[in-house]
Design a protein around this nucleic acid. Sequence first.
DNA 1: TGAATTATGATAGTAATACTATTAATTTTG
DNA 2: CAAAATTAATAGTATTACTATCATAATTCA
Lengths: 225, 225
Amino acid sequence: MERLLQSVKISINENIYVKDPESSNLGKRIVEESILMIHDMGFESFTFKKLGMQIGSNESSIYRYFENKHKLLLYLTSWYWGWLEYQLVFSTNSIAAPSKKLGKAIEIVTKTTQKDSAFSHINEVVLNKIVINEYSKSYLTKEVDQENKEGYFTIYKRLVDRISEMIREVDEDYPYPSSLSSTILEGSLHQHFLKDHFTSLTDCRKANDPSQYFTHLVFNLLREK
Amino acid sequence: MERLLQSVKISINENIYVKDPESSNLGKRIVEESILMIHDMGFESFTFKKLGMQIGSNESSIYRYFENKHKLLLYLTSWYWGWLEYQLVFSTNSIAAPSKKLGKAIEIVTKTTQKDSAFSHINEVVLNKIVINEYSKSYLTKEVDQENKEGYFTIYKRLVDRISEMIREVDEDYPYPSSLSSTILEGSLHQHFLKDHFTSLTDCRKANDPSQYFTHLVFNLLREK
DNA sequence: TGAATTATGATAGTAATACTATTAATTTTG
DNA sequence: CAAAATTAATAGTATTACTATCATAATTCA
């Protein structure tokens, strides 16, 4: 899989960035270090000035890649969902049986992220933690409708759509495939968060993953043909 | 119910505020107007200076009630969850049959908030919208563990706990009562958000509420005794 | 009532944020 | 090697998120 992925580029809506960070060394370092810094200090405390200092570059240079840190967050999370979509498609493509396919899909999108060395400058494990902690902030804004219209959430929506399609394949009579799909994706992030910060609000532990919870939920809910 | 509630005060952890906003007229106006303003302009654009201007008071006076706007958000959302808990307990208290009780509970916590005139200065309908849009921001922070330790999320946790207890009463063998409960509460906010901004990601519409989705989900998942 | 206490208002000030603009230095490329 | 493009350095602005101080208004309680 790694070899295959090496030639793949996750493609992000061009309006999210000013200049494609994949197109230069500085751009890649912006992405690489911003992931680590946002994880370390949280999105609120993270600034372009601090990032500039960290990578031995200048605040103004970073503004040539991203209008502001909100756009950078949109970029990072879009990349994550694109990466996850790739894993999903790749891993489920060859599975014919709808319920096996859906089972695999749920596993992929709910499990704790493992190291992936295909994209050398992006640490997916840390990026996954950013998504858990910060993704909601990218859409819980007053600009969400405008940004949605501009296609900033396309990849995420496509991912929800793919899973809801798989749900339909398993049980065409289930009345809430889209809601269930969005519940799996969003709920998985939430259960991972609870596991780390509010243990009493979840049954998910190290040994008892969100994967198991959602797998159990979905397959006890749908009536297979 | 209104008469009963008139003598009830939602009690909020005292460390969330500097001075109890319920203890004065200015305090109540701070709460009342901040709800409307956060709803109108979003939490990011909302400032104490703007609030001061709106209520014909001074920035510095508001700081005598709340340390910062994060604490104000904690206050408002805690109040909301306390209010919802009251509705929940009040409405389910007299129901003996576990599954009827749980059904009522789900209805209460997932439905669109209706007007409640018992607390004259708080607009619960608008507050519910704030909770949908802003609640995650109150805990998706680097300070969450510290603030959790200080009891800032007690009411919310108690609410999750009450519902997971009801789930256990219906099906003691269901292995994920806490996760299911937190999924209902968090997922309901999320479905309401999707209904307003990402209609393709949900099956919930005006006529087809998150209530129905979660009721269907829970009762098709649990095996009643 | 009137003195003391408390609450609120007005003003000023600070450090940090989130940028924009300009110019200089460096690197790339044709 | 010159021209073009990229990056770095510096400075500057408006706003935010406060803190501090002092004046004034309202409350209370002796």
